[in-house]
């Protein structure tokens, strides 16, 4: 299904504390001619409750899919967790009649029904599959050829492979391709596809932060000027928690962490102040100087 109109599903983390991702994503999507329609009403995709109740997760995800079906639009999400959940549940309920009937029993109580007529995609998938690389390159007016950056994908956009069916989780290429469309070079580094640790925050912060620290060490080793993410939780791990990690482990990183739409936005010639750069925690002034924005 190729379309340029989507129902935007923000999820919970982005409106709670990752505004820059939404601000910059809306800016670049507008430039690319993608129409966004707001969700008529909202509930969490269900992922946070999957560990405690798979059934609650299925119902919450199906509610959103049913609302999208009523609107006759596919869903675009910025959060890979939401995308992964909505995709998995959409597929399960389309294929497994018994599960669908079980979930629909709950939905009918509130006048909703899952029919299996819509689709859910993450921003990155929309960019590469529906908008297309050529169109993205056409909007680049200020190639960021002076930049060497690293990328971090976020697990739920790729795994489990069998259910998500997007890119190759062992050697993902999409984000790299999208980064290089801005003119920046994307560097390889050790253990690139490993998890940032975010889901274990609150259970064991020490373990979770060690995961992020390990990744930051590997990113520092290749002298990346910035880290590019496409997940609000990964961004919190590396940006919001970077200072905390530095203090906890007596390290210095100073690696700016940008949401991919911020990077593309800069290449499109959009000013940093319109892309939510003031929301970032790690200082970006050196990076801004390097790209001539100061």
């Amino acid at each position: 299904m190729t379309t340029n109109k989507y129902l935007i599903f923000l999820g919970c983390a982005i409106p709670y504390r990752v505004a820059a991702f939404e601000i910059s994503a809306r800016k670049i999507l507008a430039k690319l001619g993608v129409d966004l329609v707001e969700m008529p009403e909202f509930n969490c995709c269900g992922l946070p409750l999957d560990p405690v109740s798979h059934e609650a997760m299925l119902i919450l995800a199906a509610r959103n899919l049913a609302l999208a079906e009523q609107k006759g639009l596919p869903i675009i999400t910025l959060c890979p967790g939401c995308a992964g959940t909505l995709k998995k549940v959409n597929r399960l309920l389309k294929e497994d009649k018994a599960s669908r009937e079980e979930v629909n029993k709950h939905l009918r109580e509130v006048g909703l029904e899952f029919k299996g007529t819509t689709d859910a995609k993450h921003l990155m998938q929309v960019l590469i599959e529906d908008v297309g690389l050529e169109k993205i390159k056409d909007t680049v007016v200020k190639p960021l050829t002076m930049l060497k950056v690293a990328e971090h994908n976020g697990c739920h956009i790729l795994r489990p492979k069998e259910y998500i069916g997007f890119d190759d989780p062992e050697d993902p290429k999409t984000l790299k391709t999208l980064i290089e469309a801005t003119g920046a070079k994307c560097l390889d580094y050790l253990d690139e596809t490993e998890c940032c640790g975010a889901p274990s925050v609150g259970i064991s912060d020490k373990v979770a932060l060690q995961l992020a620290r390990d990744k930051l060490n590997n990113i520092k080793m290749v002298s990346a000027q910035a880290l590019i993410t496409i997940c609000p939780f990964c961004h919190i791990m590396y940006d919001t928690n970077e200072l905390r990690i530095e203090k906890m482990f007596n390290e210095t990183y100073g690696i700016p962490v940008l949401h991919y739409p911020q990077l593309l936005g800069l290449a499109m010639g959009i000013k940093p102040e319109e892309l939510g750069f003031s929301e970032l925690k790690v200082n970006v002034s050196d990076l801004m100087k390097q790209i001539g924005e100061v």
């Binding site: 409106p15 909202f42 509930n43 059934e55 609650a56 119902i59 509610r63 109580e109």
Partner: peptide, 16 residues
Amino acid sequence: LPKGNAESICKSLKGV
């Protein structure tokens, strides 16, 4: 921000 419909959410999760 789109609002949640608390009544509908609770009702559909009843029995979980």
